[in-house]
Design a protein around this nucleic acid. Structure first.
Length: 688
RNA sequence: UGCGAGGUAGAGCAGAGGUAGCUCGUCGGGCUCAUAACCCGAAGGUCAGGGGUUCGAAUCCUCUCCUCGCUACCA
């Protein structure tokens, strides 16, 4: 810790156009929170700041599409994101927003200072403009036909079909994705920051001064610096954002990446009037926790800005994590391939620490990693429950059974080397955990916490107090020593686990009837944490097993939620349909609706829309031909539960007899969604 | 295309010239206080592949393959 007297820890500002998913948590919020909780336990002077990033073009576009204001969008997602973090125990000292007054003032002043120092270049360029929507268009919001392969849906920056990178000029028949209008070129003036001027400083500071940064971070920075930096526009044409604080700058706002990192500064200002201590004093350690997509902004652009402005400390480390995949596929918010935090909290109430544990032990620290529900279950069941929780539980049970529910005394006259080893091992583990956390190796640190409880289990096994109890009178001192040490070890586990599993640490404190102050880090390694003679509460489970059904539900939910992105052309105006003629219950009762599970799926040859499905309805398996091929790939639907009309007369399509019909909901744009049970039920269940 | 990171037991990771290691899973044994838990033991690897340097290579050099990211308007 050494030369630093205070810490400022930031976690990337989530963009307020959607909720947060577990990839966000694993990438930076949980690591940051662990680090911060550890520092607080060490009684360090630390502030943990964050907030939502609420400017930028994507928010204005989302608002436009939904027919609401950008403010409506950011209000909605700020709340969802804030609640997700609070629920998961991410312990921000402040979680602010970039739309706040203090942030607008801070960012504008930052820009103005740089402007007054003459650090910007003014350039007039031609940009594409959508006259219908009244906005300038980023390259990716222009589509057209690819000049290389003829793909009619190539983006202005890249054709996803042939992979060639493009500029909007090259597209044949360019269209705005917002209004379908033909974009026209317009002149516009912007302020550029000549990043190349900061190259020598950045090279010296990172390449020479921070060789200890993680491989992925250092390598990425080196790559950028070696290939040479260029001027980059720090303003945009928009009416949503921070107005450029200059006369003659109507319709110009700060580039969202210029203002977002300044959000860390504004949030600190909002938090404390001593904010300058954390930003301007050299003995502050500033650490940015981010995902790998943010490396360039936090390691190159923001430090260059801080340096240009002057008077600020620079980040001491930027421990960026890689990405977390879900069940083997990249997270995709547009396809809804994600595990949303607000869903998890609802589906697994009071089990935040399970997710914190799994995401930490499988964190993508050195390379992309995969989250699977099976792995989630297994880590919970065999590590948290079997090893960690079970050690605490058997300690408590034995103490109640063999020591009258009170902390037994320790009798030095009968101790042996195994008793001594408990302390030696504990101290070694504490040291190891400290080293690991301070070097951002959180997986390793957490594994060591589990190792402490494993040692506890081993110690109990060797001592066998339940055997000693058969001769309780002559062995009571040995029993006392064993359980005394196990109880002290349990208390120590609470301290060591606290940064990672804060909810669990509190539960242990409750069971042991100790105050939360015991969790201070300096107490780790003490064997005097629970007092002799003190009567303790009855044992309770810290973690419980998660069964296969629960896991399968989540897997089903993930697949059921999968959607194909709707292209703007499909999002036509809704067309209201009249409700059909009234029927009687008897008419309805003629329908035999069953829940089935799709076992197999394949495309029907020479038919664009048809999939041939094999559906298990419990009593039998049906072949069903369904017109959903344009919406779902065969592999997407296998394993899905569906609602089947089981008594519909069979009908031949393309030579295949379809023995039923699958219910689908269709929106105005023609997008299809399966109508299926809210939770997994047995195949063949009746629908009424 | 260029650059960066990564590829080690079924899974997740460690090792950076000297007998390939850890956790989970699997198999066998022990134990019974404990949530079918715990403890002990075993099996399981051409260290992505080829070529080279070296007495000796997972480790150094070189070429190839695969995954992911960045390539400057995806916040």
């Amino acid at each position: 810790m050494g030369k630093f007297n205070r810490y400022l820890i930031t976690a990337a500002l989530p963009y307020a156009n959607g909720p947060v998913h577990i990839g966000h948590l694993a990438g930076c919020y949980i690591p940051a929170d662990i680090y911060v909780r550890y520092l607080r336990a060490k009684k360090a002077d630390v502030k943990f700041v964050g907030g939502t990033d609420e400017h930028g073009v994507p928010i204005t576009i989302k608002a436009m599409k939904e027919g609401v204001t950008p403010q409506d969008i950011v209000d909605k997602y700020h709340k969802i994101i804030y609640d997700s973090f609070t629920d998961m125990g991410i312990s921000f000292d402040i979680f602010s927003r970039t739309t706040k007054q203090v942030h607008h003032e801070t960012s504008a002043a930052f820009f103005k200072t740089m402007y007054d120092k003459g650090l910007f270049e003014e350039k007039v360029t031609e940009q594409f403009y959508d006259e219908t929507a009244g906005v300038f268009l980023a390259d990716r919001y222009i589509t057209g036909t690819c000049p290389k392969c003829g793909n009619p849906n190539a983006y202005g920056d890249q054709c996803e079909k042939c992979g060639s990178s493009l500029s909007p000029d090259e597209l044949i028949n360019p269209r705005s994705t917002l209004s379908n209008a033909v974009p026209v070129k317009r002149q516009t003036k912007h302020w550029y920051m000549p990043l190349q001027n900061y190259e020598p400083f950045l090279k010296e500071w990172i390449l020479e001064g921070h060789k200890e940064w993680k491989n992925n971070v250092y390598g990425q920075c080196k790559s950028w610096l070696d290939s040479g930096l260029q001027s980059r526009a720090m303003t945009r044409d928009s009416n949503w954002g921070i107005k450029v604080p200059l006369p003659d700058a109507e319709g110009k706002v700060l580039y969202v990446w210029f203002d977002a990192p300044i959000g860390y500064i504004s949030a600190t200002k909002e938090l404390t009037e001593n904010w300058a201590d954390y930003w301007c004093k050299e003995d502050t350690k500033l650490v940015h926790f981010i995902g790998k997509d943010n490396i360039v902004f936090h390691c190159i652009i923001f430090p260059a800005m801080l340096k240009a402005h002057g008077g600020f400390v620079l980040p001491e480390n930027v421990p960026a994590n890689e990405f977390l995949n879900i069940e083997g596929d990249k997270v995709s918010t547009s396809r809804n391939w994600a595990v949303w935090v607000h869903d998890y909290v609802k589906d697994f109430p009071d089990q935040q620490d399970v997710l914190r544990y799994v995401l930490t032990s499988t964190a993508p620290e050195t390379k992309d990693n995969d989250f699977t529900w099976k792995d989630f279950q297994q880590r919970n069941n065999s590590e948290l429950v079997d090893i960690f929780s079970n050690f605490v539980h058997r300690t408590m049970v034995l103490m109640h059974k063999l020591c009258g529910g009170k902390v037994p005394a320790f009798h030095p006259e009968v101790k042996d080397e195994k008793d001594d080893a408990v302390l030696t091992n504990l101290l070694a583990s504490k040291q190891k955990i400290e080293d690991s956390i301070e070097n951002f190796r959180l997986r390793e640190a957490l594994a060591e916490v589990i190792e402490v409880s494993r040692q506890g289990n081993r110690y109990l096994q060797e001592k066998e107090p339940w055997i000693l109890a058969k001769n309780a009178e002559e062995n009571q001192k040995l029993i006392d020593n064993c359980l005394h040490l196990c109880l002290q070890l349990t208390a120590n586990l609470a301290i060591l686990a606290n940064p990672f599993l804060p909810f669990t640490a509190k539960k242990i404190c409750h069971m042991l009837k100790v105050v939360d102050r015991m969790l201070e880090w300096e107490n780790a390694g003490s064997l005097k944490l629970v007092s002799v003679g003190y009567s303790l509460r009855p044992p309770e489970y810290l973690f419980t097993k998660i069964d296969d059904v629960k896991i399968q539900e989540q897997i089903d939910k993930l697949h059921a939620g999968l959607v194909k992105p709707v292209t703007p052309a499909e999002a036509a105006a809704p067309e209201a349909k009249e409700v059909k003629e009234e029927i009687q219950f008897e008419d309805f009762a003629k329908l035999d609706l069953r829940v089935g599970t799709i076992l197999e799926a394949e495309k029907v040859p020479k038919a664009d829309k048809l999939l041939k499905l094999l559906v298990d309805i419990g009593t039998e398996k049906r072949t069903v031909v369904s017109g959903i091929a344009a919406h779902f790939a065969p592999e997407e639907v296998v394993g899905k539960q569906v609602t089947l009309v089981a008594n519909l007369a069979p009908r031949k399509m393309r030579g295949i007899e379809s023995q039923g019909m699958i219910l689908m909901a269709e929106n105005a744009a023609g997008k299809l969604v399966f109508v299926n049970p809210d939770a997994a039920v047995d195949a063949g269940s009746e629908v009424r």
